[in-house]
Amino acid sequence: MKLIECPRDAMQGLTEFIPTATKTAYLQALLRVGFDTLDFGSFVSPKAIPQLRDTAEVLAGLDLGLTRTKLLAIVANLRGAETAATYPEIQCIGFPLSVSETFQLRNTNKTIPEALTELSAIQELCVQSGKTLVTYLSMGFGNPYGDPWSPETVAEFTQRLADMDVRIVALSDTIGASSAATIELLFSQLIPAFPAIEFGAHLHTTPSTWREKVAAAYAAGCRRFDGALGGIGGCPMAADELTGNMPTENLVAYFAEVGQETGLDPKAFTQAWQAAGSVFHF
C-alpha cells in the first residue's frame, strides 16, 4: 500500500499566500510520517499558480536526512521538468495529461497531441536523469465540458503511456465527477490489462462519497492512493468551485478498518494533522 500526501494540491488554489517558512515547516512534519511520496510543490509559471512560486526556496529549507519519503514535483511542460531534474532531492516528476481537450488547454495551454509530445520528451528526460515520471490522467472519470469520455478512451490514453514506458499512472478525478461504479470499472479493467504500470487513485470527493470511492478502487486492486490532510484543495484550473481532495485521515481510517498496513508513524501523523489545522485553519 502506498499513500501519497499532496500538500501541493491542497495549497495551490488558496488565494492567501502561505509564507515560505510555514510551508517548509509543514512539509517537514509530513516527511516524518512515512508517506511513500510527498507531492510537495511545482515548477510552473508563478502567474498561473502564484501560491507555489517559492517551491525552490521551500525545497532548500527541507531536512531530508531521516525520511524515506520520495519528493514529487508537478510540471506543466518540458522546461519545468528540466528545472525539476536539476534537483537531486526530487525523485519523481508529475505531469497532468488530460483525457479532456478543454481541460488540457485550460491547464497547460496545449492540445492533447501537443501534451503527448511534451510528455514523451519529459519521459526521456526522466530516464536520462534517473527520475520517475508520474502521469496524472486528469478528468479520468469524466468532465463537465461535454468532451468525449469512456472507459475505452481512458484505455487508449493508457496504451499511449505504456508505449512510452511510463510506469506510474494516476487516474485523476479532477472535479469529483466519479462514482463508485466508474472507479471500480476503470481499475478492474486497466490493472490486469497493463501489468507493467502501477495505477494510482487521485480522487476528489465530497464528505458523503469518500468511503464508497476508496472502497471501489481498493476492491478493484488499486494500492496507490493520493490524499491531502483535511481534504483541502482542488484544481483551480478545472472549475470556479474547488472540490476537495480525498482526506488522508479518511484513507488511514479506512485501511485500518480493512486491515491494510500503511506503514505510517501514528505519532508523527497526529502531529502533521495538528500542523495542517494551523496551516489551513480547520
Rank of each mutant, 00 (worst) to 15 (best):
G94F: 01
Y218K: 00
E152Q: 11
V252H: 10
F282W: 09
S120G: 14
P192K: 09
N107T: 06
F280R: 12
R79Y: 13
F269H: 00
F40H: 02
P46S: 11
A276E: 09
N245F: 05
K110S: 14
T248P: 07
D163R: 13
A201Q: 10
I90Y: 07
S278C: 07
V33K: 02
A219M: 00
L229M: 14
A81T: 11
A121M: 09
A256S: 14
Y87E: 12
I191D: 02
A219W: 00
L72I: 01
F40I: 07
N77D: 15
G61N: 08
P46K: 11
Q274H: 13
A170D: 14
A253Q: 14
N77E: 06
V127C: 03
T153M: 08
L52N: 05
G34A: 07
F282T: 01
G34N: 06
F35K: 01
R223W: 09
A85K: 02
E57N: 06
F141A: 04
S178M: 07
T55K: 09
F35G: 04
R8K: 12
A256T: 14
V44S: 12
N250H: 14
L186R: 05
L185G: 00
I183F: 01
S45Y: 11
A84S: 04
T108G: 04
I122D: 07
G94Y: 02
S120P: 00
D39W: 03
R211H: 13
F95A: 11
A219F: 00
Q189H: 07
D39I: 01
E156C: 03
Q12I: 08
L59W: 08
V75S: 06
V214Y: 02
A81Q: 10
S138W: 03
T270I: 00
G277H: 12
K47W: 00
T205D: 12
K110Y: 04
F141Y: 15
F103N: 07
Q159Y: 02
P88K: 09
L229D: 00
A21P: 00
K267Q: 14
P236G: 09
C126S: 07
C6K: 10
S45G: 08
T83H: 04
T248V: 11
L137G: 02
E5P: 02
N77M: 10
D147T: 05
F269P: 00
E5R: 10
V134K: 03
